[in-house]
Amino acid sequence: MQDPRPQAQLLVRNDHSSLCLLWVWYRANGGEARLEEFDAYLHGLLVLDPFDLKILAWAMEDYGRARVSLP
């Protein structure tokens, strides 16, 4: 599986408000890290369980799907 963090970093850099929403989707998929930890994790400053990479990939999928349907 490709590391989804570079793509997530790009997303957050272009639209800072997306960090919170991406984190909520990360939590929705079983992620346990707090928002600050999640931010640090995206930027390679914190190491989490390898399973978190999968969770982040699912979160990115859900985030992308939700964004397509803005009112």
């Binding site: 909520v24 939590r27 929705a28 079983g30 859900d62 985030y63 939700a66 964004r67 009112p71």
Partner: peptide, 21 residues
């Protein structure tokens, strides 16, 4: 307003997803 409503809707959907876990 629409953007905020959209984010709120997304958050609600996401929070519902966590319930199963």
């Amino acid at each position: 307003v629409a953007t905020i409503q959209g984010v709120a809707q997304d958050m609600e959907t996401a929070m519902k997803s966590r319930t199963a876990i």
